[in-house]
Design a protein around this nucleic acid. Structure first.
Length: 111
DNA sequence: TACGTGACCAAGC
DNA sequence: AGCTTGGCCACGT
């Protein structure tokens, strides 16, 4: 991948990463919400961007990003256990189905 | 330039 | 909330 975007033309890639960085501690966001924040891409690109973060960036709380069902989208091979541990460390709880309460930990969606 | 891929989402059964 | 189908966009070869 060529991340040589420079300051002149920040690619959507970093744009998504920037939004992920803005996720507050102890909260989780869905791909759809991030997509909404970025304002452009489909949720699919969010997951695509994070796939790169997983192995390239370490300053992005990718573990706070989950799918619409409030479940971890990452495969066990990618570090899904790590994500669960990180979320638990933030105070987020998982149910028997490995899902998170979006109603409680959802980014700011709950009014 | 074109094809295939991907940590998704929405709608239909 | 279970499963299947279609669609969208950016990246790699």
């Amino acid at each position: 991948m060529d991340f040589s975007n420079g300051e002149s033309g920040k690619g959507i890639f970093e744009t998504i990463l920037d939004v992920v960085r803005s996720i507050p501690c102890g909260h989780v966001a869905t791909y759809g919400q991030i997509a909404e924040k970025v304002g452009t891409p489909n949720a699919r690109l969010v997951g695509y961007a994070l796939s790169g973060v997983n192995s390239r960036y370490d300053d992005v709380p990718w573990h706070r990003v989950i799918n619409r069902l409030g479940k971890i989208s990452v495969r066990p091979s990618d570090g899904m256990y790590l994500q669960k541990e990180l979320l638990i460390s933030e105070g987020i709880r998982f149910d028997s189905e490995g899902r998170v309460d979006l109603e409680k930990y959802g980014w700011c969606v709950r009014l």
